[in-house]
Simulated scan of single mutants.
Amino acid sequence: MPMRRFIAPLLVAAAALMPLAGQAQDAIKLGYAKCAHCTPLALTPQNANPANVKLEATGFNTGNDVLTALLSKSIDVAQVTYLHYATALDKGFDVVAISGQINGGSQILVGNDLPVGENDWAGLKKLIADYKAQGKPFRVAASRGNAQDIHMRGAFAKQGIDINKDVQFINIPNPSDHVQALRRGEVELICSVDPFATQIREVKAAKFFTYPYDQAAGKLTNLIVTRSDVIASKPKAVEETVRAIVKVNELMEKDKGLFIDTIQKVTGLDKAIATGAAANLYPDYRIHRASAVAIAQMMRDLKYINTDVTAAVQKNIDYRFLEAATGKPKSQLGD
């Protein structure tokens, strides 16, 4: 009897520890950037089934920071951009696209005093030529490595503006610093990401020029990626993570107020800015294979990447998790 009394508590303790081991195996760390269209990912843990995954979501300053965390194995799943995806493949890194997320969020803004109206590309080209004739650099800025950078470069190229010869590119890594660069007169034009782009307009640090979606990338921005070792070791947890992303996307489409509140809560910006930013965002969990290839081709044409990664872009898209989460075939998920 004394022995039984001793063993029983041990069995109870052992049983209590067993689920903890399972939870550790099924844990997923998700990283996202603190841009407007990325912020809904903060809601994924509460919309994931805890029986299938222990999901943790962490915000980073930029998409580059998120990609670095994924490659260093600090996180398991990352919200990046189609641009980051192609860049990582160009460098030979192990990344696999598993879901889309939210697109849009790009704005080109120009200095308040510049004689250029909305969508006036002819006026902008003339102004750039005038600067060149006067021996002054026409300075354009973006955060190198994010979707807005490639949107701007693609839009410029389509309009016949050579970003390497006609203008001077300024890299401002953290989008939250864009507003001060404009206020200090350090750049003439900037392509920024929401909600910071809308913030710039709200505080009148610059004026709206255009949405830079007339290029190969279109409105495509965010992509969810992971590594092949995560897929191999935690397939069910990856599936549940994608399921949570799809669920949150559907919530954002149905409830614009929730979208606005989420932007406001994560970024700390006021409601007017969050509201303006949400108007330029498009929830879309599909992975657009053909457009991803076009983006990779455009990036090589712009000398943004050094190799032809179009085959790798297609090979490293895994639709299995989206298919499981949505019940749709990959032909309806962007393939």
Rank of each mutant, 00 (worst) to 15 (best):
H84G: 02
K125S: 12
D113M: 04
V140Y: 06
V66I: 10
I128M: 09
G111D: 07
N103K: 10
K158P: 00
Y131L: 09
Q134L: 13
A97R: 11
A86V: 03
I108D: 08
Y131E: 02
V66M: 11
G154H: 01
A97S: 12
D90M: 07
L83Y: 14
A78W: 10
S99W: 07
A147F: 03
I98Y: 04
Q148H: 06
G160S: 04
V77A: 02
D94C: 13
D76W: 05
L89K: 08
Y131S: 13
H151K: 07
G123V: 09
G117D: 10
G145L: 10
F138E: 13
T68A: 10
Q79N: 15
A122I: 06
N119K: 12
N146M: 03
L127H: 09
A97E: 06
D94N: 14
A147D: 01
A88D: 01
D76K: 05
A88S: 09
P115L: 09
K136C: 09
G111I: 04
G123C: 09
G117V: 01
D90P: 01
V66P: 00
F156H: 00
D90K: 04
G145C: 12
T81W: 12
H84M: 02
L70R: 03
G154L: 04
S143Q: 06
S99P: 06
M152K: 11
Q101T: 03
V80Y: 01
G160L: 05
I98T: 02
L114G: 02
H84E: 09
I150Q: 13
F156L: 15
G160W: 06
V77K: 04
F138Y: 15
S143R: 07
L67A: 09
P115D: 02
P115F: 07
G104Q: 08
L71F: 04
A157L: 12
L114R: 08
Q79C: 12
M152N: 03
T81K: 01
H84T: 02
A97M: 06
I98N: 00
S143C: 14
M152E: 07
